[in-house]
């Protein structure tokens, strides 16, 4: 078991007063709250800060913890890890009421070996003004999942990893990595939710389990941008295709299709391919925005053609600007 330096975790001195500890904890909690932070290990850092604060905010637990760290009374176990000395806590009495806001079920083995498991609350019993007692339906759970556009376009099975709180054999709530195989309905949109009935928190006293809600978001796609049901595409065209009109190949998630570009199409012109967007009861459209691009290198022949055009054309694109 690894010794945890709770002072280091909160970034405070060993003689820090309660106000300093509270301030340091609150700062970390805001920074690493899993709903707020975008960092990969936010959940772990948030859990560590909670554990450290649970001990350091309580004068009894803090005194016991301090005694443990002093004068080498702690010893190494055979694996080189940490072992509390026997009878280290003889002068302290930990009461169940010591556990407050934090989700103590989630704390480390180190914490558990020092302070035990007293006061853990069962699943479904936490939150502002939570109710308790009798048979109770388990709480629902929510998670956000990122899909590729193709997943939603075609629908079908997808493996999804979730971090979900679950109740273990001791009735504690622990965060577990859970991989499930889910049938993604065709045409699901960003911001929509999928409900998996009975996959939420287990019920209490024979109550039924809650549901799991998956909120959908999409990873950015290299070609298409989603606008509700519509797929937006920037379609490069040659100057002569834009001027003379042409039928060009256009990518869609279902494979390339032919798109007719009308003559005299300017850059930025939007062409709609009806029903080629996201599938659904009312399928979306694919909207291609034209972008006139030049060849990267002008060979002599092309250059000569452009030079002739420049000589013979009297077109002034800046007429409206008065120049």
């Amino acid at each position: 078991m690894e010794y945890k330096d709770y002072y280091k975790i909160l970034g405070v001195d060993r003689d820090a007063d309660d106000a300093t500890i509270k301030r340091a904890y609150r700062k970390l909690a805001r920074k690493y709250h899993p709903d707020v932070s975008n960092e990969d290990d936010a959940a772990e850092k948030f859990r560590e800060a909670n554990e450290a604060y649970e001990v350091l905010k309580d004068p009894e637990k803090r005194a016991a913890y301090d005694q443990l760290g002093r004068g080498g009374s702690a010893r190494q176990d055979s694996a080189g890890g940490f072992q509390p000395p026997p009878g280290w806590d003889s002068n302290f009495e930990f009461r169940g009421g010591g556990y407050t806001g934090a989700d103590a079920g989630d704390f480390s083995d180190f914490f558990e070996s020092l302070f035990g498991r007293g006061g853990f609350r069962a699943a479904g019993g936490r939150g502002p003004g939570a109710s308790a007692g009798g048979s109770m339906r388990g709480q629902d759970q929510t998670a956000r999942i990122a899909l590729d556009l193709e997943d939603a376009f075609q629908g079908g099975q997808k493996m999804i990893s979730l971090r979900v709180p679950e109740t273990d054999e001791h009735g504690r709530v622990v965060n577990r990595e859970r991989t499930v195989r889910v049938n993604i309905p065709k045409g699901v949109r960003a911001g929509q939710q999928l409900r998996l009935t009975g996959q939420g928190m287990p019920g209490l006293g024979g109550g039924e389990a809650g549901d799991l809600y998956l909120e959908i978001e999409f990873r950015p796609h290299p070609l298409f941008r989603l606008d509700d049901r519509n797929l937006m595409l920037e379609l490069p065209v040659a100057p002569w295709e834009a001027a003379l009109g042409a039928t060009v190949k256009t990518p869609t998630p279902a494979g390339p299709v032919d798109l007719k570009i009308p003559a005299r199409s300017n850059s930025g012109r939007r062409l709609r391919l009806k029903g080629r967007g996201m599938p659904g009861k009312t399928p979306g459209d694919l909207i291609a925005t034209l972008k006139i691009v030049l060849p990267e290198h002008l060979d002599d022949e092309t250059r000569a053609l452009y030079e002739r055009l420049a000589r013979e054309s009297d077109f002034n694109p800046r007429k409206k600007l008065g120049v």
């Binding site: 493996m159 195989r181 049938n183 309905p185 929509q192 939710q193 999928l194 998996l196 996959q199």
Partner: peptide, 10 residues
């Protein structure tokens, strides 16, 4: 992942 979970769009 032994079986596939079916879900419905809310």
């Amino acid at each position: 992942t032994r079986y596939t979970l079916t879900c419905e769009i809310v």
